[in-house]
Design a protein around this nucleic acid. Structure first.
Lengths: 251, 251
DNA sequence: CCGATTTTGTTCTCACGTTCACAAGCTCCT
DNA sequence: AGGAGCTTGTGAACGTGAGAACAAAATCGG
């Protein structure tokens, strides 16, 4: 990074057709909004319309779309079907991706039943669990299979996406197995930080983190100046004579 | 914003004790890492140790913690229990927040059973659904109650957080009812953009969006230069004579 | 008591993301 | 045909976030 001095400020130096990560994260939202408009029989929409439907600001939406190309018509707007197809293609959901779900507890169950599995583009090819009691159980039109079959399934069905819905304990091990089997994208619901080699993408969904973020803002609303006024345990000099604060976070 | 000229660049002008949003989102991760260390009987940890456990870079971790105060000891590190308490207090999970879950389908079921409900700090006080067939069903030690009881429950139990696990259709209506009843933080699992008045915080968890983001990156990995080479339907002049692209995204 | 060593807290710089504002371009009406 | 009126696409300004680097503070050994 010592060549920084010779760089113009310019746009973020997008490599070839690299789309900024923040934009990628919004494309699915636009896709859904377009589908909804399409279902309502609307054929054309302005950036303002779309932005409202997607819950963002119209300038941002236009800039996001501009990374894909010039798919709008000035003075008119965007053709809903056409733009929908272009975004779907850019994301890659015009083809179907094979997905395995590992860990068929409550959450795995729920995801397995998730009809349509979102906006299509994904196909669950296997539900896996290591618990012999669960293997063989039918969920919808699928049957839970033994986790030991993972490697076969990944190879046979060209699985590239794995969903981890195990408890925290076995999650890293499951993750390693998935990666070794050839899965290169992982969606993790287990409350742990998973480590994966370069080249493997990982995303995390964590209920309790989301709740805690809400709690933080909630506290500031109700509290305002009524916070417990810095119970900082003032006598914090050495580390050895610490009062036993802990253990009782929930007490 | 015309007074911008008189401002030094400086740090983000944090108002009083305002913590940057990006930092707030990481605090729960640190909290979990600290709890894990504590459970392992580790009493002191350096920023490097903590950063590894939390999956972030140590400089970032130190900066994040510095927004809370100076809770470390130079040359030594952080006392695990002490720091854990401070973060828990800052987030607001030293007290318990009452939560209602609306929509007891597969996902609502799964969340209701989610033992411990994450890292504690939250208490599910009601499971609600509008479907009379579900009302009365027992889940764990709770019983599904009628959505009509919402207002009573919110008032009685001082509920400030609502979780929406309904289908997309009724989600906005449920959201409005929650807000009207006095709920000021919402965690939305329904695949729609909900609109809420100012002062209400909303966070969204969306499985299919996460999968689509993974698909985008997956496509660039496997595809590289092998992309279907811009099927841009070149004859895109007028909007009226568009070929019927759509309908068949998944076909 | 003093210097060596360790590790925090903070400053500085660069990269990224968002928003404003406007020229370019399209359609429609006269 | 030509001008009025919209709406896109984008350049520029601003704000936020990340990471490198270092000074300040604490411990430890002699």
């Amino acid at each position: 990074m010592t060549r920084a001095s010779s760089r113009r400020p310019g746009p973020p130096t997008r490599t070839e057709r690299g789309i900024p990560e923040a934009t990628v994260a919004r494309l699915p939202v636009y896709l859904r909004a377009l589908t909804a408009l399409s279902d309502s029989g609307i054929a054309t929409a302005s950036s303002e319309d779309l932005a409202t439907a997607a819950g963002v600001n119209s300038a941002k939406l236009r800039k996001d779309l501009s990374y894909l190309g010039s798919y709008g018509t000035r003075g008119v707007g965007y053709d809903v079907e056409y733009l929908r197809y272009q975004i779907a293609r850019e994301i890659g959901v015009t083809q179907d991706w094979a997905v395995v779900i590992v860990g068929i507890g409550n959450l795995g169950h729920a995801l397995a039943n998730y009809s349509g599995f979102g906006t299509r583009g994904f196909r669950i090819v296997a539900l896996l669990d290591a618990d012999p009691n669960l293997v063989g159980e039918r969920i919808g039109d699928m049957e839970v299979r033994d986790f030991a079959e993972l490697e076969d399934i990944v190879e046979t069905d060209r699985v590239s996406i794995g969903v981890i819905t195990t408890p925290a304990g076995p999650a890293q091990e499951v993750c390693d197995r998935l990666v070794a089997a050839g899965v290169t994208s992982i969606l993790n619901f287990a409350p742990v930080v998973l480590s994966v080699p370069d080249g493997v993408d990982i995303r995390k969904v964590d209920l309790s983190i989301e709740l805690q973020i809400l709690a933080y803002h909630e506290q500031r609303k109700s509290g305002e100046a009524a916070l417990p006024q810095v119970p900082e345990l003032p006598a914090m000099n050495g580390l050895t004579d610490l009062p036993s604060v802990g253990g009782g976070v929930g007490a």
